[in-house]
């Protein structure tokens, strides 16, 4: 059973992710209107249940390797919205001091090992972090987020194969949002469930409803336990959907009825209803949390806008340690 406070925390993080994504889109559009291009922006609205549930389970010292669609995972791992927003604007105060942007938020001090711009780029790195945890005899786990598209790259095979051979504490967390950029899953994957591949590596595989907080929580919790207890990796596939196209520069191209169906399964109202039915969440409380979140986002935007840009003389800083 999930403790009540944890349930409210999960909802709060889901709100925070959603509001961050809405704000980031607005900022991106406002800059675009002025002729300024803020790089690529890959939003994760619709996938919040996965990030928030997992964030509620992981310890601060566990590792998370995320993707170009990584704002939600970063927030769930404890990243500060103001430093994320500053990074989106390329500011000196951002997580990567203006070197990374939307796709590359890092904070090793909270186990956030960064967003990766390369599809599947984190798969083998997460195996290395897990190897490091095993080597140091810590009971940390390493979580690698990736999409259905990344399940088609060669490194997916190499990473799971090695992790299973060496019983490494990795959780391969596939967010299958049914589209790899503009390519539907049926053109990229010949099987119904990506987790079926786990069998080929002698590790545990599960495919679940990624929009259901309790399902994600329970499944992920057992995968984390397996990792911490030295029983090796897990491959979890969370079926979910992003509410927006691949990134800001790609217009909506997905079938209307498909999108409509998934909007009705939006994880946020779905989880609100669950908590209301359990008498954990009142309308008043819901409103109060939403307002807190709106305030955090407003402050983050102000912090980001007020922050200085990196100075040109620092161009070559941070190439070398």
């Amino acid at each position: 059973m999930i403790p009540i406070e944890k349930k409210i925390d999960i909802l709060r993080i889901m709100y925070l992710i959603r509001e961050f994504e809405i704000a980031s889109r607005n900022i991106f559009k406002a800059h675009l209107a002025k002729g300024e291009f803020l790089g690529a922006l890959h939003n994760c609205d619709g996938q919040e249940a996965v990030a928030a549930s997992i964030g509620a389970i992981l310890r601060k010292d566990d590792y998370v390797f995320t993707t170009f669609r990584g704002h939600g995972h970063s927030i769930a791992k404890g990243a500060e919205p103001k430093k994320m927003m500053a990074e989106l604007l390329g500011k000196k105060t951002g997580y990567s001091k203006g070197r990374g942007g939307s796709m590359h938020m890092f904070d090793p001090s909270i186990g956030l090992m960064g967003g990766n711009g390369v599809v599947g780029g984190g798969l083998t790195l997460a195996v290395g972090a897990a190897l490091s945890a095993q080597y140091r005899c810590s009971d940390q786990v390493s979580v690698c987020f990736f999409g259905d598209g990344a399940a088609a790259i060669g490194a997916f095979h190499e990473a799971i194969n090695l992790a299973s051979l060496w019983k490494l504490p990795v959780i391969f967390l596939c967010e299958n949002n049914l589209w790899a950029a503009t390519t539907p899953i049926k053109f990229g994957c010949p099987i119904e469930n990506i987790s079926e591949r786990a069998k080929g590596y002698n590790c545990v595989g599960k495919s679940i409803d990624g929009n259901d907080v309790y399902t994600v929580y329970e499944t992920f919790l057992s995968a984390v336990d397996r990792g911490r207890n030295g029983n090796g990796p897990s491959l979890i596939e969370c079926k979910t959907y992003r509410h927006h196209p691949h990134c800001m520069v790609i217009p909506e191209h997905r079938p209307k009825d498909e999108k409509q169906m998934w909007l009705q399964r939006d994880p946020i109202p779905k989880f609100e209803k669950v908590l209301q039915n359990e008498n954990i969440l009142s309308n008043h409380q819901q409103e109060k949390i939403r307002n807190e979140i709106k305030k955090i986002i407003a402050e983050a935007i102000k912090f980001a806008e007020d922050s200085p840009l990196p100075t040109v003389d620092t161009l070559y800083d941070y190439i070398w340690a």
Binding site: L123, T124, V127, G128, L131, S132, E158
Partner: peptide, 18 residues
């Protein structure tokens, strides 16, 4: 195993983590 991507990737991930 013969997995150059995983060899270098695992080495990099391990280097990132101490």
């Amino acid at each position: 195993p013969i997995s150059e991507g995983a060899i270098i990737g695992a080495a990099v991930g391990a280097a990132m983590t101490g």
